[in-house]
Amino acid sequence: MLKNLDPLLNADVLYALRAMGHGDEVVVCDANFPADAVARDTTLGRLLRIDGTDSARAVRAILSVLPLDTFVETPAMRMEVVGDPQALPAVQREAQMEVDAAEGRAVPFGPIERHAFYARARGAYCVIATGEQRGYGCFVFKKGVILAPDVPTEVLAGGAPKERS
């Protein structure tokens, strides 16, 4: 055991999350997702697992160490429900609460059509499969940055630092 780390974060998952750079994406998927086949096309090239838990709990563990990108409009995305793209099933509402709690603010999921989600997942850094049995427990998260405390706030907002006198 390690202090201050969620016990769901196994060595393989921690390695991948640490190895990712700013703008890289991680896919968290349910047990129905074609995770192994998709993961073979990712940067990491193999499937990672957080078994025995649902999507929301896995999202909480991952976001306990992964900063979301503040330079993009939608750093968190969800797979749309086929035939009802506006629907938010319980599994997605639960994950949304975890995202908002981790960020300390509302960070609404951006929707991605199912087949577009598969294509995007293939371009991700890695795929992490969960034990989630409900459909549509599939998400993409874009990694952000952690800056030193003395970085001007303008840099965080994407602007140029101001001259200091």
Rank of each mutant, 00 (worst) to 15 (best):
A19P: 02
I112W: 02
A95L: 07
P89D: 14
E163V: 13
A148Q: 10
D69C: 12
T53S: 15
P161N: 01
D30W: 05
P75F: 03
K3I: 10
L147D: 04
G123E: 13
I62G: 07
T70Q: 09
V59H: 04
Q86V: 11
A61L: 07
P152L: 10
V145M: 06
G135T: 03
R114I: 05
L44G: 09
G21N: 01
G158Q: 04
E163N: 08
M20H: 05
G83I: 03
V59R: 05
D51R: 14
T42S: 02
K142W: 01
V82Q: 04
P75V: 01
P67I: 11
T70E: 09
N32E: 04
A116F: 01
D6G: 04
F109Q: 14
Q133R: 15
L9Y: 08
R105I: 11
L5G: 00
L66Y: 10
L68K: 05
H115F: 15
R122W: 08
A31Q: 01
P108F: 13
D30P: 02
P161A: 00
R78F: 07
A35H: 03
R60A: 14
M77L: 13
L14M: 11
G159I: 00
A124S: 15
V107R: 13
E80C: 12
A31L: 00
V82K: 12
K3Q: 12
V127Y: 04
T53K: 13
A39S: 15
R164A: 15
L156T: 02
L63W: 00
M77R: 13
G144P: 08
I50E: 02
L2D: 08
D69F: 08
T130A: 13
N4T: 10
A101C: 00
L14Y: 01
A56S: 15
A157Y: 02
E132K: 09
Y15E: 12
R60S: 13
A19N: 06
D100Q: 07
L47P: 05
L88V: 13
T153M: 14
Q96M: 15
E73S: 07
R60M: 05
A16F: 06
D54L: 08
E25N: 02
R49W: 00
G52Q: 12
G144H: 07
G52L: 13
P161K: 01
R114K: 13
M20W: 03
L66F: 12
E98F: 07
A35N: 02
G144L: 06
L44P: 14
V26C: 06
G23I: 02
F109M: 14
D150Y: 10
A157V: 00
A56N: 12
A37G: 02
T42F: 03
Y136N: 11
R49A: 00
A87E: 05
L44E: 07
V27M: 04
E113F: 10
M77N: 04
I146P: 00
H22F: 02
Q133T: 15
L44I: 14
I50D: 01
P111R: 14
A160M: 04
A61E: 09
D36C: 09
R134K: 09
L63H: 00
V38L: 11
R57H: 03
A16T: 10
A35I: 01
H22P: 01
V82A: 07
G123Y: 10
F141E: 09
M97F: 03
S165D: 15
P75T: 00
K162C: 08
V28K: 08
G110A: 15
A121M: 05
A160W: 01
T43S: 14
T130H: 09
P85R: 03
E98C: 08
V72Y: 07
